[in-house]
Design a protein around this nucleic acid. Structure first.
Length: 479
RNA sequence: GGUCCCGUGGUCAAGCGGUUAAGACACCGCCCUUUCACGGCGGUAACAGGAGUUCGAGUCUCCUCGGGAUCACCA
């Protein structure tokens, strides 16, 4: 039975890189009919952010990533919050001490820092010299009894090789002499992240450890621990980071590294997930659009990339536009409504608005500037009436507007089809291009060169009174 | 600096010894058209460099270069 876990620290919002890692971890579990476990790693009180756990829950749920075991729903391997597991680790470390795979160390931070500085001065890389490993058992016991603060360190063999196999990267081996005796238990009795991770993953029965690339070089050390305990090692799958550019990770400093940032900017969560899934993974065919269920069906580690991917807002935006176009008009309106309000646009014709806006909206936040002219006619220059292709200019426009105003005023009902037929028949009757008729009408009603939709849709949205008022005002300008 | 990892167009990314080196985004052009979009058609553009192995190398090996990660009582 495959068991994977996502183990975020509650330090704020959901970083896109984290989100993608969580997604792949989730997909892998689901694709293999396994369990997906959520574990909260909150041992760092300094970085703990109030409410961050809820953000994690909410975000994962909202995109359809449900977990089988976790702090909120429990499970057979709890607790699932690391701070509640704090008493679990020390006995394991002591077991290692018994096996001579770890040892008590009484060196203080100051002493270590001094030795580190000295090493740096000599241009060497500092490595703990196993000073305390050579203490006699009696000496150790005496210091323990005296209540001296201590730390427990891993006893890495001086020679030989430490290695592991990664599904993506293959066999990775390092020489033990390059490894430092890392601290397992800190002076405050708490485990270090590395140690807690190993213990948690093992005791929770995690079969596949999926995590960021940055652990690639420390994993051999982890495996030494598994060997020391005599535990079966998990399968490792290391995942690449998402980059801002060739040399920098997407980071909070960029101000656009978080899932929430993009939601606020008017992106659809489905589009973000879809895009991010494809950054670093490909399904092996030409498909680009996936629901979460489709991702589960299509996912496999073979499609995962070994090199980092640069985040391209451009493509996200394109994909978001595609998702927007696939919405029903009703769904579109639901998303767009707050933005209509923001622009001060009130209309009963949300169907018409959806029709003209849906193919033109890449991101919802673009909507206000596209529709603001409906709420208030902008000041505009009569030169806007000039358009070569439509064969119109202020003089032509004056004539066209006279005709249009007369014809539209005579309309029994202010209804789209009627407005359309009236205007086009008028153009035909006067032997002019449709554009020659419609350009001035649109400009007079909108007061700007570029508008979503054409003269007819705008007339419907504005309604009879406002349309005619604007047309007349436009005509006035041309005197 | 030591160790480890990565390297196909601007970006994502197919390719797993024999291809005219896919596709998508972006960009450019044309068509459609009532402005702008949407849509349709077409185009520019890549194997980091060098040695080897091989009849044949983007694919295998080595070196160089470039980039990243890691070397904490932080996670």
């Amino acid at each position: 039975m495959v068991r994977t876990r996502f183990a975020p620290s509650p330090t704020g919002y959901m970083h896109l890189g984290n989100l993608r890692s969580a997604l792949y971890t989730f997909l892998f579990a689901r694709a293999n009919n396994g369990k997906f476990i959520l574990r909260i790693e909150d041992t760092d009180r300094e970085r703990y952010v109030e409410g961050a756990v809820d953000v994690i829950y909410r975000t994962l749920k909202s995109i359809g990533m449900d977990w089988d075991e976790g702090p909120d729903i429990g499970g057979d391997y709890g607790p699932y919050v690391q701070s509640e597991r704090k008493d679990l680790y020390l006995p394991y470390a002591k077991e290692l001490v018994k096996k001579k795979k770890a040892y008590y160390c009484f060196c203080t931070e100051e002493e270590l820092q001094q030795r580190r500085d000295e090493a740096a001065a000599r241009g060497e890389t500092f490595k703990y010299d196993k000073h305390c490993l050579h203490l006699s058992e009696e000496e150790v016991q005496a210091r323990l009894d005296a209540g001296m603060p201590y730390v427990i360190r891993q006893n890495v063999p001086e020679h030989g090789e430490a290695s592991f196999d990664d599904v993506l990267y293959g066999h990775i081996a390092v020489d033990c002499s390059d490894l430092d005796d890392m601290i397992l238990i800190k002076a405050d009795g708490m485990p270090t992240y590395n140690f807690a991770n190993v213990i948690d993953d093992h005791t929770m029965g995690i079969t596949h450890v999926m995590r960021g690339n940055e652990y690639l070089s420390s994993t051999p050390k982890y495996n030494l621990l598994y060997d020391a305990f005599g535990w079966e090692k998990p399968v490792y799958i290391h995942m690449t980071p998402i980059m801002r550019d060739a040399t920098h990770k997407l980071s909070k400093r960029d101000g656009d590294a978080y899932f929430e940032d993009y939601i606020n900017k008017g992106y659809l969560k489905e589009a973000i997930v879809n895009y991010v899934a494809l950054l670093g993974w490909n399904p092996g065919d030409e498909r680009e659009f996936f629901t979460i269920d489709e991702l589960i069906k299509a996912f496999s580690v073979e499609g995962m990339s070994k090199s980092p991917a640069i985040f391209d807002v451009n493509k996200l935006t394109w994909m978001n536009a595609e998702y927007i176009r696939r919405l029903t008009p009703e769904q579109f309106t639901e998303y767009a409504l707050p933005y209509y309000e923001k622009a001060g646009v009130k209309t009963d014709h949300t169907d018409v608005l959806a029709r003209i806006l849906q193919p033109r909206t890449e991101v919802f936040t673009q909507i206000p500037e596209m529709v603001d002219f409906l709420a208030a006619l902008p000041d505009y220059d009569v030169e806007l009436f000039t358009n070569k292709k439509s064969k119109t200019n202020p003089e032509v426009a004056a004539k066209v507007l006279d005709m249009a105003i007369a014809a539209l005023e005579a309309l029994p009902d202010w209804e789209e089809q009627q407005i359309h037929d009236t205007l086009l028949n008028l153009a035909a009757a006067n032997e002019m291009k449709n554009g020659t008729m419609l350009w001035p009408v649109r400009i007079a009603m909108a007061g700007k060169q570029v508008t979503p939709g054409g003269a007819i849709e705008i007339a419907v949205l504005l309604g009879r009174d406002e349309s005619l008022r604007r047309l007349k005002a436009g005509r006035e300008k041309l005197n």
